[in-house]
Structures are given as structure tokens and as C-alpha cells.
Amino acid sequence: MFEAKISQGSVLKKLVEALKELVTEGNIDVSPSGMSLQAMDSSHVCLVSLVLRDDGFDHFRCDRNMPMGIHFANFSKILKCAGNDDAITLKAEDNADQLTLMFESSNQDRISDFDLKLMSIESEHLGIPDQDYSAEIKMPASEYQRIVRDLTSIGDTVLISATKEGIKFSTSGDVGTANVTLRHNTTSEKQEEHTIIDLKEPVALTFALRYLKNFSNATALAPQVKLSLTKDLPIVVEYQVGELGNIRFYLAPKIDD
């Protein structure tokens, strides 16, 4: 059987909110080492990869590996019934066709349980190699959210260029053009306010803004976001989820034909 308890249930709520617009359904794979998900959007342009480690949970037990086919809009409906301070326990029997979610209020005076119907999903897995990127940029997650929101109101695609001057986001559309440049900045006492640009070589890539904006639905999960760029490769937008794991979004670049 599978059983996992997380005392900070709001994290689970935020995770599902972060990916439900991007992917309709997918297999959450459970194993003794934790939970993971890899799912592509319907157009195969971007991919969400989620890793939650067993030791990040308050309690974790998984006797055998199994995929749990989840419809994320339905998962979200049930998680919306959990209070933000609730502890959440997930339970499933081996080869079950449902996932039980139990919500406990922080003073344990309210307990509720819901069953989510599981689906059989044939999923495609992509092998994503570990690699060095030409540029890795860490910035406040709120800053990333602001940039992609602002630029989406101006244009459809963004050119992201990383140089020793900083990282520049440029777009243009019917109303005109926009450029936002962030410089390496570690002056704040608060680490989450730092912008750190780790540049091995300059790189410039173009992406569809609506997907980059969609990734910012994960802003509530982490104070910082990391962007990884290499010429002619998908961008990786990564949020660390505390000690629990991470959520990564991959988006294919637009390449001149």
C-alpha cells in the first residue's frame, strides 16, 4: 500500500494549482523513494517534472511502485476542500482505482476524507539528461512573475539573452516594444531577494510568453526561481519546494526555420 502524510497541506494545494492549467492529466508515480510526475502539455511544447522525496513527508510508506493516473482539475476540486493549515494524508491500496485524501485541521477537531477516482493513463516519458547550462539565473520568483506578466501584455514571444551585463527579456507587439534587464545583485541581506547570474557563455533564446507566464503559477511555492539556458535547448524553470523536492518546467525554444 501507499500512504503519505504532509503536515503542511497547503504545499500540495499550491503544487496542483501550479500545474493544472498546463497538464490535464498525468501519472503520479509512487515508489519507496517518493512521488514523481512527468507530464507534457497537449501540444508537446512544454513539460512539467515534479519530484517529492520520501523524507520530505511527515510519514511515507510505499510497498510497491505504482502509477496513479490523476485528472488534475478533479484533484484540485478535492484539495480546495482542505484548509490551508490542514495536514493531508494520501492513501491508496496496491493497484487501487481510487486515492483517498484525509484532511486534519491543525487542532485536530475536524477530519474529512475524500476519494479521488484514478485513471489509467498511458504516459510518454522523456529522457532528460543532466547537463551543464550556458547560463543559470536565480531571481526572486515574484520578479519572474512580474516580468512575464508585464511582457505578455506587450507581445507573444520573448527573447531572453544572458550576457555579462545581465539577463534581458525583450518582446514586441502591436503596442510597441519592451525590454527588462536584471543585473547580478546580492546586496540585500535577504537571500531570496538576490539575483544571481552564473554565466559560462552568452546565450540568447526565444520562447512563447504564454507558457512562461503559465509556469509562474508556481510562484507561491518558493521565494526564488532558477532559469537554465543553453543554445538550441529547452529552458528549464525550476522552483525548489522547501525540503520536499522541486517542480521543473521545460519549454522548447522557438528556432528560426
Binding site: H44, V45, E124, L126, Y250, A252, D257
Partner: peptide, 14 residues
Amino acid sequence: TPIQNDLCEFYALL
């Protein structure tokens, strides 16, 4: 014009 590529062109399907 730039084209939007499929992710499968970058990473192998397992």
C-alpha cells in the same frame, strides 16, 4: 518566422 518546436525533438522518448 520562428517555429515552436516539439519537446520530443530535444529529448528522447523512453
